[in-house]
């Protein structure tokens, strides 16, 4: 019998496929649909202190091998979004509240609120590649990041995950700092900073000009990052980046991930992608005489 449940610290997931932040998480209804489609956990969109409209369109374009987006962290602010999180608190699928801020005080305030609204864990977005003052601008500064993680951990009791960027040279230093500050898990990777230029108009297609690249094209980058992180820290890793099939997920497990997040594949395969990937993981495990996810985690690192 194949068991695809997994754990991330104290958090137990019935299956290892989580909904990635920023996908179908506008409100309680959309997140509920992703749960019904089989997601093992839901990560909310990234929420800040104040409402934020994000960038003008075009915000998303499809390229040959992936999707390019610059949404610009649109969200209604923590107070209004809290109402959506509250509606889901009775669900048996864990909700991970994604938050973004520019400094430790704001991160703490958002974290406390998310916990109060019923989130089962937090994901600190310190890796969005296209928002001034936020995301990556915080996540490439090891001193600031350590201060943020330490402060958040002191003020909440739910697990705290750190979502890191592939767009940095000091990835190992960053994740080791997060571990030292008692982070419970690392989520890797956020999108890869990229651009698309339209030849006829001779201008970048995205209104924000640069954006983040996701989907199949970035999977090898994500796998490499997870592998590097697995060598550097002992806390669990959640793999994300281009996971579209069960075999993609298994590759991430072998690189060191305990669970995976799925985003762009909701476009490529539809909302039922969670069920499909779980079935494909089971089939692969059956065919390879594997009975638990644990046997696969870090298999390529030994």
């Amino acid at each position: 019998m194949v068991d695809i449940s997994t754990t991330i610290g104290p958090l137990r997931l019935k299956n290892p496929t989580m909904l990635a932040s920023g996908i179908m998480d506008e409100d309680a209804g959309s997140m509920q649909r992703m749960m019904d489609c089989g997601a093992g956990a839901i990560v909310t969109k990234s929420i800040g202190m104040q409402p934020r409209e994000g960038y003008a369109n075009p915000t998303v374009v499809e390229l040959e091998y992936g999707l390019l987006n610059a949404m610009g962290l649109p969200n209604p602010g923590i107070e209004l979004y809290g109402e959506e999180v509250k509606k889901l608190r009775t669900s048996n699928v864990p909700i991970i509240g994604s938050i973004y801020a520019a400094d430790a005080d704001e991160f703490v305030s958002l974290a406390e609120k998310m916990q109060r609204f019923g989130a089962n864990a937090l994901e600190l977005n310190v890796s969005c590649p296209h928002a001034k003052q936020y995301g990556l601008e915080v996540g490439c500064d090891p001193v600031l990041l350590q201060e943020i993680v330490t402060s958040v951990k002191q003020n909440v009791s739910i697990p705290v995950f750190i979502k890191v960027s592939p767009n940095i040279m000091n990835l190992v230093q960053i994740v080791q700092g997060a571990e030292k500050a008692s982070a419970d898990a690392i989520v890797a990777i956020n999108t890869v900073k990229a651009m698309k230029i339209d030849l006829e108009t001779r201008c970048p297609v995205l209104a924000n000009k640069t954006g983040g690249y996701s989907g199949k094209a970035i999977k090898p980058i994500g796998v490499r990052c997870v592998y590097d992180i697995a060598q550097a820290v002992d806390i669990p890793i959640i793999g994300v980046g281009g996971i579209t099939t069960g075999e993609d997920a298994i590759e991430y497990f072998m690189a060191g991930a305990s669970a995976v997040q799925i985003g762009s594949a909701v476009y490529y395969r539809g909302p039922d992608v969670f069920k499909s990937v779980c079935e494909e993981i089971k089939t692969w495990m059956k065919n390879h005489g594997t009975t638990t996810i644990k046997e696969l985690i870090g298999a390529a690192c030994r």
Binding site: G22, I23, M24, D25, E26, D27, G29, S30, M31, Q32, R33, M34, K45, G54, N57, T59, V60, E62, L67, N69, M71, P74, G263, S264, V266, Y267, G270, P271
Partner: peptide, 19 residues
């Protein structure tokens, strides 16, 4: 209000996640 128009961003959802 729409952003992606391809069913992933969730911006235009109504009811139980109808895009």
């Amino acid at each position: 209000y729409m952003k992606c128009a391809i069913g992933i961003c969730g911006q235009c959802c109504v009811g139980k996640g109808l895009r």
